[in-house]
Design a binder for these strands. Structure first.
Lengths: 247, 247
DNA sequence: GCGCTCATTTGATCTGGGTCATTGTCGGAA
DNA sequence: TTCCGACAATGACCCAGATCAAATGAGCGC
């Protein structure tokens, strides 16, 4: 049901004051695991020092798989697809990063995935090295990061459960339910689910064909579980979606 | 290619001296991420104090999803399946734990999954609470654990890539290649791949039917990429398997 | 040995969804 | 306005794999 994030719903995002009007600490603390509370103001300041605000246009690359992992990112607005390209030209999307999500939790020396902006995106950028150094001295931040990573792992395993579904309709429904929960965390909205990614992205995320995504969304619309709107869907019957999204 | 572990190839496993004849530190240090090196002997001793050796017969339960997460486990011998049961009676296996692997990395308050022994299994059992308390005082252990979790996350994402494969043959091949790599870490063996889990377990892991597992193994045997033996398979043509397991 | 059970393999059939092709829709550029 | 390209939806066809069924094989207790 829950869906993969490469990231963590606001936590560190809220810790850097760039774009503070939109992403201050206040809207963060009630979110997700409420991890912000673990940090004191000195630690918050330290994170601010290390970070730098950056922005990307649609389709621009944050980082590419195989390259040295120089930076870690904290998405403050927009949306990002994270994926692995395969030798046969196929692409497996492993997650979509939304505002508040964190990219680069794996802390390995080179990127296991590529990431590029789906829509115009802003982020706080940290040097991986200095970020890692800080962890050596800041127990709280490390604990925070560990919790974020653990949570991320849970979400990845949830995604595995979704992908094990034998029916494409279940996958689509689970995708929508999971994405709805995430937008709900971000905006409080539960009816309108923005879908910044295109059908091909959803298809490569769920391991089905584009046409299958399209057909099943149409099918859900036909049975009035959702309405398809230009930039996403509106949920009419969440019960129906949840019952399809096997848990 | 790589395959999911709920766990980490020997690390903490080697840190508890129970069954030290088989799982001392020495055989550990060269393994995986060589994380053992991060701990000094005091820290090793502390882990010993906290842990308790336990054993399970085939099919016995280590923990059940939904229950309070009282313990974390470090597998010292045997094999364990980790899975989620779904309301429709289906089962999604999210990983197989082998000797050296660690169960309970998520550190959440209740188990997101069930785990039971496939074969007779021994493990070091830690109280989750005391283990967690220790992390507050032992920076090194926390860093170690964080690295383990990050690695775990990478493996889960790798599994996602496998499950995104449109062909069942690719999934089976990727499963074998990944499992071979793990047994290689444990025993140095690269030809004989033990398969302690049955066909149904493999099927529920890869999201295909039992018959599909059986047919594709037979097919690989027919083309002489593997030989099926009573307790697993022997690899004849690793190149073939690797080329099927798309990366 | 025999009979029983359970796992695995193999076969036969059917269907969900992949693939290819067409059409529709929107938005930006000229 | 028209043209163009990207994206989405829908139809037609076909195949990989799910499902159903049956056969074979591997323990294990008696």
């Amino acid at each position: 049901m829950a869906q993969l994030r490469i990231i963590e719903p606001l936590t560190l995002a809220a810790l850097c004051s760039h774009d503070a009007t939109v992403h201050g600490c206040a809207p963060c603390r009630h979110r997700s695991l409420s991890l912000c509370a673990a940090l004191d103001s000195d630690e918050l300041g330290m994170l601010d020092e290390l970070s730098k605000s950056v922005s990307f246009g649609a389709s621009e690359t944050l980082f590419r798989q195989g390259e040295d992992a120089e930076f870690v990112f904290n998405i403050t607005s927009g949306s990002v697809r994270v994926y692995r390209s395969l030798h046969d030209g196929q692409r497996q999307i492993v997650g979509f990063a939304l505002p508040g999500d964190f990219l680069g939790l794996s802390m390995s020396d080179h990127n296991a995935f590529s990431a590029d902006a789906i829509t115009s995106t802003t982020a706080c950028k940290f040097s991986r090295q200095s970020f890692s150094d800080m962890l050596d001295h800041e127990q709280h931040v490390l604990r925070l990061l560990h919790k974020m990573t653990s949570h991320e792992l849970n979400l990845a395993q949830d995604q595995m459960v979704i992908m094990g579904c034998h029916s494409a309709l279940q996958k689509i429904a689970a995708f929508l339910v999971g994405l709805r929960a995430r937008w709900n965390m971000i905006s409080g909205e539960t009816v309108h689910i923005p879908l910044p990614m295109n059908r091909g992205d959803i298809a490569d995320f769920l391991g089905v064909a584009i046409e299958t995504v399209s057909r099943n969304l149409s099918s859900l619309a036909r049975e009035k579980a959702i309405v398809i709107v230009p930039d996403g869907v509106r949920v009419l019957n969440i019960r129906r979606l949840e019952s399809l999204a096997r848990r």
